[in-house]
Write a protein that binds this DNA or RNA. Structure first.
Lengths: 217, 217
DNA sequence: GTGCATATATCTAATTTGCATATAAGCAGT
DNA sequence: ACTGCTTATATGCAAATTAGATATATGCAC
């Protein structure tokens, strides 16, 4: 590994913005720090990138570790933005490649309640102080999520395999903070071609049960 | 500067995808390499990030250097994506933060013809072999450009201060490769609120001169 | 002035979208 | 079984947006 004056050495990390929707609220996974700097504050989960590890693989490793499931399969994962301000980490010059992940709440709940240091914080109402520049990273992730919602099947990554159109609308409303017109939303979603009806219906409702949909392959 | 087994040292570079439109073609600035690896091939201009240099500043430095104008003011510049595959640079583990820049052809022409090693290559018809993963980076930049064209005033960054609606349409068509309906395009652009008429008209046409528009502040 | 090329304005049909209404389906109580 | 309640789903219509075609305007060359 060669470094020199013209190739100054950097530490490269990945930070993971793992979002989910529970109780109609968009939340982000945060981890309580125990070490300096920012000890005691909440931070995004992350880690150093290995010498021979691709960036995506590092992000997937962090995801699999925190979400406690193999390889983070099925989760939405995409690179978000790279933060490299010289002052962002007081210890050393660090460049952090932020990744953006989505997971259904059910698949995350067990891992979060099992780990002492993990919490889900509502994105619309974050703790006043977060470690590093993580508040800015979360804001960037929320912007990306809102921006892509209508062009990519992001919301489906936040729902279980089978879901009703009401569930889907609740996810959209939790992300944007705006309430939507029901028939228009239904039409728009069906027209995207991202979902298909299963023929099954939800159970244990005290009213007419809605049809269950699933992602199209 | 602390590095260790758990903080392996990386080289961090910026690569610049500087695009412009000349003769109704979208082109990208490339530089002929004289050193190994990939000596003799064309590559994106780039450079190592300084120890105390913010990423954006490094990109602006490369831009100002190649485009030969102070600080790259006025040019559109945004971070694109970060490429960090372990095999992307045979010399060492390098992470490259790619930036995406737009400049009017007039402001670039002098610098390009003055420099022996710089060329503008058409994006739709790139040389078959480029250095490193630069073909993929250019493809990502082109995708970003196409994707944002309707939501952000990107095309205006490719035009001089005063331009006709015909010029603006030509830029859109060069980027997307699709021809557009003229009245619809005109209406759409005026409705964005990004531009305003100057009251002046183009000169030296052999037909009815079009009104000159400019960016709104 | 006439002809030519292109700019700009106007008009109409088609599509999309928002909203309101009507009907359907399940459950709980009587 | 019937009534009432709640929500799902289908249908209908008006408003807004968009695409395309057509008509008119304006400069220059001859």
């Amino acid at each position: 590994m060669m470094t020199s004056m013209t190739h100054p050495p950097f530490a490269v990390t990945v930070d993971l913005v793992l979002m989910t929707v529970t109780a109609d609220r968009l939340t982000v996974l945060l981890q309580r720090r125990t070490a300096e700097p920012f000890s005691g504050l909440l931070a995004l989960p992350g880690g150093f990138v290995g010498v021979d590890e691709p960036l995506d693989a590092a992000a997937r490793r962090v995801l699999a570790d925190k979400a406690a499931f193999a390889q983070g399969e099925g989760a939405w994962l995409e690179q978000l933005y790279t933060f490299g301000d010289p002052s962002r980490d007081p210890r050393m010059r660090t460049v952090s490649v932020a990744y953006f992940a989505l997971l259904p709440a059910e698949e995350l709940a067990a891992a979060v309640s099992a780990a002492e240091d993990l919490t889900l914080a509502p994105v619309m109402d974050l703790p006043p102080a977060l470690a590093f520049d993580h508040a800015a990273i979360i804001a960037a992730a929320h912007d990306r999520l809102k921006g892509k919602l209508d062009y990519a099947p992001l919301a489906l990554a936040l729902l279980p395999e089978r879901f009703t159109l009401r569930d889907l609308q609740a996810v959209h409303e939790a992300i944007t903070g705006k309430s939507l017109n029901k028939p228009a939303f239904r039409r728009r979603m069906i027209d995207t071609g991202w979902i298909e009806p299963t023929g099954e219906r939800e159970t244990a409702t005290s009213f007419r049960p809605a049809e269950l949909y699933r992602r199209k392959p």
